[in-house]
Design a binder for these strands. Structure first.
Lengths: 120, 120
DNA sequence: CAAACATATACCCATATGGGAATGCGTCAA
DNA sequence: TTGACGCATTCCCATATGGGTATATGTTTG
């Protein structure tokens, strides 16, 4: 087996830096392939291929405009990523960690910080 | 060129479902490789290899305990993922207006150093 | 109609992958 | 010491990747 396909889910699709750049560029609004080619400095086929992947996971939508194709972001699939990562927020935020200890010792969570002081 | 190495960053490391499972399992606390083997139903070498990747990107720390090795999560590297994805929250959240303000502020880099956040 | 333009596909290729199986190596038990 | 245990590493391999280049498809213009 090789690595999971990039089109498997948003996790894989977004692992590629170039695709993140594309999404960032599209964050400002609709853009045609040619615009992205200029903005990213990538070859046109490469951009089209990245867009294909993004489309397959639903991260972008397309709209025909004459001989151009306008792409736009659709962040919905990123929600899964966000939700998963959010669970680890506490692990890079020391405060939560300390708070956890404190709460653990107290045995219960006070309804609000009643100015418990900063003891430690 | 092939795909970027899985050890390139948290984005790539976490794109693999098994590695996410490992992190989820470790979220409860330290675990030995053998524990993970049982929990995930994977072969031991595979688990060790996934742990290697996670270690290389700093997502887990190890600790020797006799002939076992206890792994624990370190969510720090996930912060980059979280921060990037958070930019797109507005695309699946209805509160555009509020988010717009936030994004606007993110667009500028205040001279302040770390610690800003909203802690207060 | 043909020519120019915009985009998508097809091919080719070097590369890292993740699983399987075998093995190396340090640690604990008898 | 020998042997069992726990884990890491190595080798093998099918597979998808992303970039490069060439080409096919569709659209607008002359």
């Amino acid at each position: 087996m090789a690595r999971a396909a990039t089109t498997t889910d948003a996790f894989n699709a977004v692992a590629e830096p170039r695709r993140r750049e594309i999404l960032d560029a599209l964050a400002g609004g609709e853009l045609a392939v040619g615009d992205l080619v200029e903005l990213l400095g990538l070859a046109q086929p490469q951009v089209s291929k990245h867009l294909r992947v993004l489309r397959e996971v639903g991260l972008v939508d397309v709209r025909d405009d004459g001989r151009r194709r306008l792409y736009r972001v659709n962040g919905a699939p990123l929600r899964a990523v966000h939700d998963w990562v959010a669970q680890y927020e506490r692990l890079w935020n020391e405060r939560f960690d300390l708070m956890d200890d404190v709460l653990d010792e107290l045995g219960t969570r006070p309804p609000t910080d009643a100015g418990t002081g900063q003891g430690d």
